[in-house]
């Protein structure tokens, strides 16, 4: 029982990311409504971001901003005391780029609705076949 609990606690951050990722992927594949596909894509994105940020974590570490005095006094840095800054940097830009790509996806959806009068995938395919 103890082992099982330790096993779960040791890696459940990855499990959360994987489950979110699968939910997003299922939405993208199985849903018929294009807007729901876009929502699936956003969930997928959130899973990737969670995964990266949890990789950057260190036990007992604080945010990667050095403590500094007003006069610029500065001690030697112990790397284990600060979280890994690299995943944070990568995800910081990924979030904003994610919002922009979401905007493009919504614009294309609006265009599809204008042309086909629907955003249901099967109905669009019918109108294309005619």
């Amino acid at each position: 029982m103890e082992d099982l609990l330790a096993y779960i606690i040791s890696r459940y951050n990855y499990w959360a990311a994987i489950i979110l990722l699968l939910i997003g992927l299922y939405g993208m594949i199985a849903k018929n409504n294009l807007l729901k596909k876009v929502i699936g894509m956003t969930i997928f994105q959130a899973a990737i971001i969670l995964f990266y940020v949890s990789i950057g974590d260190k036990r007992g570490a604080t945010i990667p901003i050095l403590a500094h005095g007003h006069d610029g006094a500065h001690q030697a840095v112990e790397a284990a005391a600060y979280a890994n800054p690299l995943p944070h940097v990568l995800m910081l830009t990924a979030i904003v780029v994610g919002v922009s790509t979401l905007g493009v996806a919504l614009a294309i959806l609006q265009k599809i609705y204008r042309v086909h009068g629907t955003i249901e995938e099967d109905e669009i395919l019918e109108t294309i076949d005619q």
Binding site: Y14, S54, R59, N84, L86
Partner: peptide
């Protein structure tokens, strides 16, 4: 690697 491992390859 374990969550929060300071010796994980990424860190």
């Amino acid at each position: 690697p374990f969550w929060g491992d300071p010796q994980s390859p990424a860190s």
